[in-house]
Computed example of a mutant assay.
Amino acid sequence: MAVATATATAGCQIGQDDGLTLTRGTLSGDVTGAGATFPEPVFQEWVRYYTSAVETGVRIDYEAIGSGGGIEQFLEQAVDFGSSERYLEASELAVAEEVRGCPAVQFPVIFGSVVIAFHDEALDGMVLTAETIARIYDRDILYYDDPALVALNPDMDLPHQEIRPVHRSDGSGTTYVLSHYLATEVPFWAERYAEGTDIGWHEDTLAGDGNDGVTATVHGTEGGLGYVNQSYALQNGLATARVVNEDGVAIEPDLAATTAASDEAEIPGDFQFNLDDIGGEGYPIAGANWILAYECGYDEEVAASLRDFWDWALTDAQATTVATDLGYAPMGPELTARVRDEIARVNATP
């Protein structure tokens, strides 16, 4: 859980004539949020910097419990905002409006990649496809020197070692991003497992709680292979796979490839989208993180702090640097402007 408190002050003007202009150092309020572990590294740094150097009277408490938990707590009104790697669907939006008495607001704040990570650093750069990833998790491909993997990696000396696939044990947006990708690309996966934040995994697989748990299990298991947010792989020095995209190119999951994937997204006005059929230089297993809030019902101090924090996260140069250093791809100017308009809806209904 990331908790940050105030220690310093800064005085300057931000924003433009968009309803979000505030004098720095004037806000106060306790804001609570819960949800995805996918963006936790960048959220931690954003919260720490914002509450110690931007708005020191604000306290933000974010608990990384997984996207499923974040959606649940948001709909139960247990937190001020939720965070998820999938958007709220029509049925969930209806529930949100019913329980709150006003519409929900949801907007993306960051893009990131879901990487396939290995225990063995000698496997760094190994090439995988959607089909081989699906077959590994289906326990059809059992060893690293399976003919299908050898054919993709003719220049690697793959060991005759059992693959120990690791998945998330909690309701997870990271699981949603991976399972959506596999269900889109691999027919048998769509029929047998489908997609979701929590799916019925093969019984002969390992489980870890959160990105931290999967990372630790992969790191500590001979033959371990798992899916995690790119930032966790970077922070823990895990070897990662290159994944073949829609154009048949094996792509390393770096920041440039995540940015290229996000650039291909067609994002509608309701911000309900997936990153599908990624080609070019884009990494194919990529997704966004959404923030979930409401149009009404907040104490005004909380609402002002909530609006300002996310506006700052999208527009401040320091926030952008933090995100890119951790391997996340910020949004472009046009999308940022659209999202800022959505942020301004928070508590806008009397």
Rank of each mutant, 00 (worst) to 15 (best):
D157G: 06
D157K: 04
L158C: 09
P159A: 04
H160E: 12
H160N: 15
Q161W: 01
Q161G: 06
E162A: 15
E162R: 15
E162L: 15
E162F: 10
R164S: 13
R164F: 07
R164K: 15
R164C: 09
P165W: 02
P165E: 07
P165A: 11
P165L: 07
P165T: 08
H167A: 13
H167G: 13
H167F: 11
R168Q: 15
R168N: 13
R168S: 13
R168F: 15
S169G: 09
S169Y: 00
D170C: 07
D170P: 01
D170Q: 11
D170S: 10
G171E: 04
G171Q: 02
S172N: 05
S172Q: 02
S172I: 02
S172W: 01
S172G: 07
S172C: 04
T174P: 01
T174Y: 03
T174Q: 02
T174E: 03
T175Q: 07
T175K: 01
T175D: 09
T175A: 14
Y176M: 06
Y176P: 02
Y176R: 05
V177D: 04
V177M: 13
V177I: 15
L178M: 12
L178T: 09
L178D: 03
S179V: 04
S179H: 09
H180A: 13
H180T: 11
H180F: 07
H180Y: 12
Y181W: 10
L182Y: 06
L182F: 07
L182E: 08
L182K: 06
L182R: 04
A183H: 00
T184A: 11
T184K: 10
T184C: 03
T184G: 09
T184D: 13
E185K: 13
V186E: 02
P187A: 08
P187E: 10
F188R: 13
F188E: 14
W189H: 05
W189I: 04
A190S: 15
A190M: 10
A190Q: 11
E191F: 11
E191G: 09
E191K: 12
E191C: 05
R192Y: 06
R192L: 10
R192N: 11
Y193C: 06
Y193T: 13
Y193I: 15
Y193D: 04
A194M: 11
A194G: 15
E195A: 14
E195T: 09
E195Y: 10
G196S: 06
G196D: 04
G196M: 08
G196I: 05
T197D: 09
T197P: 01
T197G: 08
D198N: 14
I199E: 03
G200K: 12
G200R: 12
W201T: 10
W201M: 14
H202V: 07
H202T: 07
E203C: 06
E203N: 11
